[in-house]
Amino acid sequence: MTMTAPEPPKPASIWEVIPIGRAAWRVCDGNLTESDASRLIAYVDKNETGTLDVLWLRSPCPTRSRYRSMPELIADLDRAVAEHIISRAMRPTEIPHFPPQH
């Protein structure tokens, strides 16, 4: 019998995409209250070529700042948050200690 490790659970999208203009949005964390400043994750603007430019305002966030679509942006945000959760759960890297040199 072959056993495989289960995949880590994927985070549920908790992001609220709120329009603030004809081609601009705010991405907010739906788990936080409206009065919490850390609720605001990013500002998104659609540029003249149709791509989305993102200004990330909170960590963890993806390293990219340009996307072709909002679903692609949200999926990348989910992935960055999941990786952050996994990396925080791992043991820290040990720093080698050497005896003093004489």
Score class of each variant (00 low, 15 high):
1 M>C: 02
2 T>H: 13
4 T>V: 08
6 P>K: 13
7 E>Q: 14
7 E>N: 10
7 E>R: 14
8 P>L: 15
9 P>Q: 14
9 P>F: 14
10 K>P: 00
10 K>Q: 11
11 P>G: 05
14 I>K: 12
14 I>Q: 12
16 E>S: 10
18 I>H: 11
19 P>H: 11
25 W>E: 09
25 W>L: 09
25 W>M: 11
26 R>E: 14
28 C>N: 07
29 D>F: 13
29 D>G: 10
30 G>K: 13
31 N>G: 13
31 N>E: 12
32 L>A: 12
35 S>V: 09
36 D>A: 12
37 A>Q: 15
37 A>I: 03
38 S>I: 04
39 R>V: 04
40 L>E: 12
44 V>Y: 01
46 K>S: 09
47 N>D: 15
48 E>S: 13
48 E>T: 06
51 T>M: 06
51 T>L: 08
53 D>E: 12
53 D>F: 00
54 V>K: 08
55 L>M: 06
55 L>E: 08
56 W>H: 07
56 W>R: 08
56 W>L: 02
58 R>S: 07
58 R>W: 03
59 S>I: 00
59 S>L: 00
63 T>N: 09
63 T>I: 01
63 T>G: 03
64 R>L: 04
64 R>M: 02
64 R>Q: 09
65 S>D: 08
66 R>K: 14
66 R>G: 00
66 R>P: 00
67 Y>L: 01
72 E>A: 10
73 L>T: 01
73 L>S: 02
73 L>R: 03
75 A>Q: 10
76 D>G: 03
77 L>I: 07
78 D>V: 07
80 A>R: 12
80 A>V: 06
81 V>P: 00
83 E>C: 02
83 E>K: 15
84 H>D: 07
84 H>N: 14
84 H>L: 00
85 I>K: 15
86 I>M: 01
86 I>T: 12
87 S>Y: 02
89 A>Y: 02
91 R>W: 01
92 P>I: 03
93 T>K: 15
94 E>P: 02
94 E>M: 07
95 I>K: 15
96 P>I: 04
98 F>G: 00
99 P>T: 06
99 P>L: 06
100 P>V: 08
100 P>G: 04
101 Q>V: 07
101 Q>E: 13
102 H>R: 11
102 H>T: 05
